[in-house]
Simulated assay, not measured.
Amino acid sequence: MTIFFAILFSVSTLVFVAGLAMKIAQYARTPAPLKIPTTPAPLTKGGVALRLGREALLFESLFRGDKLLWLFAFVFHLGLAVVLVRHARYFQGEAGPLVALVQPLAQPAGLAMVAGLTLLLARRFVIERVRYVTGPSDILMLALLLAIGVTGMLMKCVIHTDIVMVKAFFTGLMGFELRPLPADPLLGLHLLLVCLLMIVFPFSKLLHAPGLFFSPTRNQTDNPREVRHLAPWAAKLDEGQ
């Protein structure tokens, strides 16, 4: 089990990092020939940065469009953020101040994550207009995230595992040292699901996380009257004429 997960985590981390880097590079290279910010839009780059920050942290446009969906999504993402910060302790020799700060929130955050995912998944089946546009990948991604959350909460609240050995395994793996992993079936399932998520993440709809910052409807200033907008390739054509 130790050798299997050492290899699997190494491969899945490589796929995750390389795949995400390739996608971000692709987004950065994609031309934006039109000036299409969603109005009302900021007029300055500072305003654009502030707008992107509100979108990334508060889901501002979603709140305006669908407050119930915003609530489900915000509960899930907030819980996920706390869970991810807390899991950083498995990769650190000494827990940092941020990890220590969120430590008491571990169980409520896990429950919030599972509750938010359950509501988002139920919404895909209950609301007819949403069910009509729901594809298999939408269901599978939510189900995968939910399975990760549920198995994690089971280990936290019901069937405990040896977290000291888990931490030793991951800190050793970061230093290219193989240390034993607990022979716990629930832990194995949880880690297997996490590796699967890491592998499929760069090729799934979950890329809306980094994709937000490359959306021309969000990252452009609303100054088409003051400044002529030209994509680099269009500028070259314009110079040639």
Rank of each mutant, 00 (worst) to 15 (best):
68 L>I: 15
171 T>Y: 06
237 L>E: 15
106 A>Y: 14
214 F>Q: 00
116 G>F: 01
107 Q>I: 14
176 F>H: 10
20 L>E: 08
16 F>I: 08
92 Q>K: 04
210 P>G: 07
16 F>S: 06
148 I>T: 00
43 L>Q: 12
193 L>H: 01
184 D>R: 14
150 V>N: 00
71 L>V: 10
136 P>S: 05
142 L>P: 05
160 H>Q: 10
136 P>Y: 05
229 H>L: 01
65 G>I: 04
72 F>K: 06
73 A>C: 12
215 S>N: 13
128 E>R: 08
48 V>S: 02
16 F>H: 13
79 G>E: 08
200 V>C: 11
72 F>R: 06
16 F>G: 04
198 M>D: 03
232 P>I: 02
54 R>V: 04
166 V>K: 01
8 L>D: 03
207 L>N: 10
230 L>S: 13
85 V>H: 10
38 T>Q: 10
7 I>W: 13
210 P>Q: 06
7 I>N: 09
133 V>C: 04
217 T>Q: 07
36 I>W: 05
104 P>L: 08
166 V>Q: 02
20 L>M: 13
134 T>S: 14
24 I>M: 08
1 M>R: 12
104 P>H: 08
76 F>Y: 14
173 L>Q: 09
138 D>G: 04
180 P>H: 07
213 F>I: 08
83 V>K: 00
201 F>C: 09
56 A>W: 11
7 I>A: 15
105 L>A: 13
160 H>C: 03
50 L>P: 02
